[in-house]
Each structure stands twice: as structure tokens, then as C-alpha cells.
């Protein structure tokens, strides 16, 4: 059962709700545990689930996810088992594969993407693959209807934003800050908000890297995000509950965190609904989603509103 990313976001939009995207490493602590973990996340309120495929040299990951990848590899995870595992997951949320390019390159981009589609995966994120090198992957994604999801960073200049958006599918992954993955509790910085404000697209905007609390999730949705991506906070829970005897406790904690995060997201949606001004009146606020303007660049929008 494959759930498409666009369908999921459309449904959430109907409800006026932001999305929680949960990331965990497939195979951590064992391949057998992953389906239960995913179901716990979905029970708690995860709207989409990203499953990491472990790679030996994850340059975009901080210590938490590096360690998770190490445990998964140790437990015997590999691309073949990954696809089997994913195909056997019976959850009604979109599944996204996150991995590094060498594994895809080695498998063959065409075969890899086809296998993703056949296993029920609807999007792929490759953190070490910028658009410049992504031609083969995006072409295969096009052939097999898998969304190629790209990242935009606080350092990405305007002309690159356009270039990335022109290749991107599914949702756009905005980095809340510079750096590698890892939980950073604390206030959401200005850079995430600035990025949300300056990236104009009709793709849903998801913010990740460092998001770990309900307060942060709420703040991001208020600032105009359609989704928040939380990884290391879940992975930390898995890291401290490795005992096979304690799997129920692990599932309980994961579900509880997902619920807490989703509650934060819902709070923001409620608040936003109350405060959203009438369409077209306050273009600086990203809460203002005039869908008709979404696919134009920010500059065009400002021109439209007579600001420039």
C-alpha cells in the first residue's frame, strides 16, 4: 500500500493541519524491530515516515544518527533487506527513503528507484547529492513516480533556490540551520524563519535538522512550515532502549514523543487559523498562503503586492 506524498499533504491541508515527518534508521536496533517502531510513530501521529538506509560514511549526520547507522549495519541491514522490510510495512503513511548516494550509485539509480516504488516508497532524500549531480536519479524518479526530495540550506542563494525547486518533488526540505543532523533543543533560530519566508514554492515546505521539541515544531508551523522533520530525538530514544526485552517501553516512548510533537503542530495550526490575515494583505508573513501565488518567486510576489 503506497501513500503518495502529495495526497497526504492535500488531506492535511483540508484539515488545516501541519505534518509531522518522523525519521528513524531502518534496522536500528534490529531489522525485526523496525516495523513496530514505525507503527508506534504512526500511532503517535507521524504523518510521513523517513527510513534511513544505513551508510558507512554519513557525512551529513551528527553523532546520534551516525551511531544508529552503525548499529543497523552491525545488525545486518543492507539495501536488499531494507526493501524487504519496507515492503512488509503495513502503514497508511507515505514512506521516504533517506540514504547516501554511493549506495544508490552502486545499486544503479534506475534499479534503486524502481525498487523503491515496488516496495511502497514514495520519495527519496539523498543528502550528499546536490541538483548538479542528480540528473540520473531525477530521471529515474520521473520514470517510476518517486518524488526526488531536495534540500535547501540557509546558505543557498536565490538563484540556486530556483534551480533546486525546478528539480524537486514531494516536498522541499529546508534546513533549520547549518551543520549536521542532531537534536538541538532551544529556540528556533532566525535562519529557519528567514528561509521559510524567502523560499516561494507550491511544494510543501518541511523544516528539519535539529528540531526535537513540541515547542520548536509549533514555532516552525507558525512561521509558515507545512511540516517539521524530527529525527535525532526519536533515534535518541531508540539508542537508550536497545534491550530486546524492553521493546514495549521503547514503542511507548516513541509514540508519546510523536504525540507530543503532533500536538504542538496542531496548536500552531489552530493559532494560525485565528491570526491569518486575509489573503494578500501581509506578504511578509509566510503564514499567508495564497496558493495562486505559491509557484512564483518571492520577488514576483512582492512585485505583485507593490512592495518593490
Amino acid at each position: 500500500m503506497t501513500v503518495e506524498i502529495s495526497g497526504k499533504f492535500a488531506a492535511l491541508r483540508e484539515k488545516g493541519e501541519g505534518a509531522l515527518i518522523a525519521y528513524v534508521m531502518a534496522g536500528d536496533p534490529t531489522p525485526e524491530a523496525t516495523p513496530k517502531i514505525v507503527r508506534a510513530l504512526v500511532r503517535g501521529g507521524a504523518d510521513l515516515v523517513e527510513l534511513g538506509m544505513p551508510f558507512s560514511d554519513p557525512v551529513a549526520d551528527g553523532p546520534t544518527i551516525q551511531a544508529a547507522g552503525g548499529r543497523a549495519l552491525e545488525a545486518g541491514m543492507n539495501p536488499g533487506r531494507y526493501f524487504e522490510l519496507v515492503a512488509g510495512l503495513e502503514v497508511d503513511v507515505p514512506l521516504i527513503c533517506m540514504t547516501y548516494y554511493n549506495l544508490i550509485f552502486h545499486y544503479g539509480p534506475e534499479a534503486f528507484v524502481k525498487k523503491c516504488r515496488d516496495s511502497g516508497i514514495s520519495g527519496i532524500i539523498v543528502p550528499d547529492l546536490p541538483v548538479e549531480e542528480a540528473g540520473e536519479l531525477t530521471a529515474a524518479c520521473g520514470r517510476h513516480s518517486v518524488a526526488p526530495i531536495f534540500l535547501i540550506a540557509p546558505t543557498t542563494p536565490e538563484n540556486r533556490v530556483e534551480r533546486v525547486l525546478s528539480e524537486a518533488g514531494g516536498f522541499i526540505y529546508l534546513l533549520s540551520r547549518l551543520g549536521v543532523t542532531g537534536a538541538h533543543p532551544g529556540e528556533i533560530g532566525a535562519s529557519a524563519k528567514a528561509l521559510l519566508a524567502r523560499v516561494g514554492t507550491n511544494l510543501p515546505k518541511a523544516v528539519g535538522f535539529g528540531v526535537s521539541t513540541a515547542g520548536q515544531a509549533e514555532a516552525l508551523i507558525r512561521a509558515g512550515a507545512d511540516a517539521v522533520i524530527v529525527g535525532s530525538a526519536f533515534v535518541n530514544i531508540i539508542a537508550s532502549n536497545q534491550d530486546p526485552e524492553e521493546r514495549e517501553e521503547l514503542e511507548k516512548q516513541l509514540e508519546a514523543l510523536a504525540r507530543e510533537l503532533k500536538t504542538g503542530i496542531r496548536n500552531a495550526a489552530g493559532a494560525a487559523a485565528e491570526t491569518v490575515p486575509e489573503s494578500g494583505q501581509n506578504p511578509e508573513l509566510p503564514e499567508n498562503r495564497d496558493r495562486g501565488l505559491e509557484n512564483r518567486s518571492n520577488t514576483e510576489k512582492f512585485v505583485q503586492y507593490g512592495k518593490i
Partner: peptide
């Protein structure tokens, strides 16, 4: 040209996180 930077035959290229591309 776009997507051809630093290629030596089929080798080379720029396989790095987006954060680093501007750098």
C-alpha cells in the same frame, strides 16, 4: 557548464550536501 564541473572522464564532480555548494 551546469552539472559538468570538475569532471575527469566519468570521475570527479561535486557530491556534497547542499550547504556546501555555495562555498
Amino acid at each position: 557548464e551546469f552539472g559538468t564541473a570538475g569532471k575527469y572522464g566519468k570521475y570527479g564532480g561535486q557530491y556534497v550536501p547542499e550547504v556546501l555548494m555555495p562555498a
